[in-house]
């Protein structure tokens, strides 16, 4: 039996990080933020069809975790998956094109926001079914283990999805067979429109790890350094063959459940307070400047480059052609 989950603290100093990794953190978080802001704007302008769910305020979790993975590691993400997909290294142009329903998108316009995948970087799919990814990640990890590969599978889920039975079935199988899976709960406090604590048996989702005999770790999900370190330790052990682990990242969903959500269930003041005090990107900026590991000029350059890349992605998506109706039957069967 594993012990109660531990809370992993932020590193006392960030001077040990090399410049490349610091730049990477800021670059990825900035790209995600710009990407999602553009998505919001274009969706509300009626240019993007379907449903979209944005990751604003949660950038540090995906960035911190993915910085420990290679393109050969697999991830399964969720309906709120743009951030993970960018952090895994997918091309924002083809992502944006997919979200716009264009043929140049990763899924040729057949998937949309909730069904992006980029197998070339190990992003095995977003999932429109809450809790749909656990068993798939477990199976990909099983395949890796059977083939003697050292790569792992990471599945992202929310506090709401942690109440699905699929969590139990996958966690049990992964732990019983010591599969290389990292279960990452992004506890953003909101299960769709419901405060998770009103419908969830525990305060900390990581408490549930004990029941499967796997380690559980809690971390401040808005601190990219803390997330990176916590994930690093767990992933090293998973790669060694020690079996799965559960990492709970405490964060907060700044946007509504979906773009356009009237958010009748919370006050604007509550959201604004979190965004002012606990924005993961502002926290990163403040800390790297305070510890003098990056300069304002360096931050500005990365940010402006990220903005440019995302603006190019939007232009690309806007101008890309739509699929031809004749493509309807393509890719139904092999």
């Amino acid at each position: 039996m594993c012990a109660k989950p531990v809370t992993k603290k932020t590193p006392s100093s960030i001077k040990k990080y090399d410049k490349e990794l610091l730049n990477h953190f800021y670059d990825v978080m900035s790209k995600i933020r710009f990407f999602e802001q553009n998505i919001q704007e274009k969706f509300l302008a009626g240019v993007i069809p379907g449903f979209v769910h944005v990751y604003i305020g949660e950038e540090a979790t995906g960035t911190g975790i993915m910085s420990n993975l290679t393109k050969k590691d697999y991830i399964q993400t969720t309906h709120r998956g743009h951030g993970h997909t960018i952090a895994k290294g997918a091309d924002p142009k083809r992502m944006m094109a997919e979200i716009f329903g264009k043929k140049a998108g990763f899924c040729k316009g057949k998937g949309g926001s909730m069904h992006i995948a980029d197998f070339s970087v190990g992003m095995l799919g977003a999932n429109g079914i809450v809790g749909g990814g656990y068993t798939l990640a477990t199976g990909s990890a099983l395949a890796n283990k059977m083939m003697g590969k050292k790569e792992i599978a990471v599945v992202f889920f929310g506090d709401g999805a942690s109440n699905r039975g699929t969590f139990h079935e996958a966690a049990n199988m992964a732990a019983a067979w010591k599969l290389p899976v990292l279960f990452v709960c992004e506890n953003n406090q909101w299960a769709s429109t419901t405060p998770y604590r009103t419908t969830t048996s525990v305060e900390d989702i990581a408490d549930r790890a004990q029941g499967y005999g796997m380690p559980g770790v809690i971390v401040d999900g808005n601190d990219v350094f803390a997330v990176y370190e916590a994930a690093k330790g767990l992933i090293e052990n998973i790669r060694k063959g020690e079996g799965p682990a559960l990492l709970e990242c405490k964060t907060y969903r700044i946007g509504g459940h979906f773009v356009g959500d009237p958010e009748m269930y919370r006050t604007k003041e509550e959201v604004q307070k979190v965004f002012t005090e606990n924005d993961p990107i502002t926290r990163f900026e403040t800390r790297v400047l305070a510890e003098k590991v990056m300069s304002q000029a360096e931050l500005d350059e990365i940010k402006s480059n990220a903005r440019k890349i995302i603006e190019e992605a939007v232009d690309f998506a806007m101008q890309a052609p739509e699929p031809d109706p004749a493509e309807l039957y393509q890719d139904l069967y092999v």
């Binding site: 068993t135 990640a137 477990t138 199976g139 990909s140 099983l142 395949a143 059977m146 079935e169 996958a170």
Partner: peptide
Amino acid sequence: TETAIVGACVGAALAGM
């Protein structure tokens, strides 16, 4: 665990099995 059996088979298929 029929759910995990089928789900894991899907995941394994995606990973080359």
